[in-house]
């Protein structure tokens, strides 16, 4: 959906180092590895903001077979930037923070963000693989002392001090937030759709494995999830309408009753003016039209 005020997104924030935190995704139907949908929107938002200066980071197991496939989906988005001037076409670069099984991603990511001097980090709200709790952004922000905002639909403008964003609310509404840098922004699924991932840029993009940035004594093991049991997702049971009544007649009536709206008010024999007045009165009483509307 186009954002309401597609104004000054072209304001390039010079000097604000921007990074996107990406995760490996999975196609919802085919199950094929690829870019995660919300993370791809975050990368798109970052590319629209700073162009090819956007750096990507992923923390994961370098031995995983489908890793290259997932990450190339993001690297293939580095095309058509800067109005298509050929000189500015640069290839994407992704930092891979190697993790072994059972290690937590938060500490290495925090160390990387600090080392690179990143001030604006973009990511999706929730990973598509693994726990998918959406906690990584919050833990990073808490650890680094950054601000965090969730459900962001668009970045309106960005300068050295702060970034102005639109947050998506239910029912298609938007709220404008001003967030002080450094900050972390979790991008909602209603943000601008990501550009296609192209094969050439994806092959040319470099994946650079970063050496361990953490001090040697810091624990990397994820102790919290040791005793969890993972199982294939079950379908959630549908809630039944249970009628708590002692008498069989009421239970039968509730089961057999057609759901019909009752208490509807029917007004007949109205002139159009009267009908309009009734309608406006109703809308104002229900607070759908503003009261002071003239």
């Amino acid at each position: 959906m186009p954002q309401p005020e597609p104004q000054a997104i072209a304001k390039r924030p010079h000097g604000v180092k921007t990074a996107a935190l990406v995760s490996s995704g999975r196609h919802p139907v085919s199950g094929r590895a690829g870019r995660a949908r919300e993370d791809a929107r975050a990368v798109e938002m970052g590319l629209a903001l700073v162009g090819a200066d956007l750096s990507l980071v992923h923390a994961g197991d370098p031995e995983q077979a489908s890793l290259r496939e997932s990450l190339e989906g993001y690297l293939g988005m580095y095309h058509g930037l800067d109005g298509g001037r050929p000189g500015d076409e640069r290839d994407g670069q992704l930092s891979l923070l190697p993790l072994r099984a059972g290690e937590d991603a938060v500490a290495p990511l925090a160390a990387w963000l600090e080392q690179r001097g990143v001030r604006l980090a973009l990511t999706g709200q929730r990973a598509e693989c693994g726990e998918g709790s959406g906690m990584v952004g919050y833990l990073l922000a808490e650890r680094l002392g950054w601000s965090i905002a969730t459900g962001i639909a668009a970045i309106e403008c960005c300068d050295e001090e702060s970034v102005t964003v639109l947050q998506a609310l239910p029912q298609g509404q938007r709220r404008r937030l001003e967030i002080r840098l450094p900050c972390l922004i979790a991008v909602d699924a209603v943000a601008e759709a990501p550009r296609q991932s192209a094969f050439g840029p994806a092959r040319r993009g470099r994946i650079e494995t970063v050496d361990d940035l953490l001090p040697a004594d810091e624990s990397r093991l994820d102790t919290g999830s040791a005793d969890w049991r993972w199982q294939p997702a079950r379908a959630r049971p549908k809630r039944l309408k249970v009628v708590k009544s002692t008498n069989a007649r009421d239970r039968f009536k509730a089961a057999a009753a057609k759901s019909s709206a009752t208490g509807g008010q029917v007004l007949t024999d109205l002139s159009p003016e009267e009908a309009a007045e009734k309608l406006i009165d109703y809308l104002r009483a229900e607070k759908i039209l503003a009261q002071d509307d003239q």
């Binding site: 019909s260 709206a261 208490g263 509807g264 159009p272 406006i280 003239q294």
Partner: peptide, 29 residues
Amino acid sequence: PSCDMVKRADLALIADGDAVLAAVCERLG
């Protein structure tokens, strides 16, 4: 007045749609 939408509605106004909408715009200035 006998159609199903009127039965479903919380408020049903039995009148001509075009005329009512025009009157609403008029009344809202």
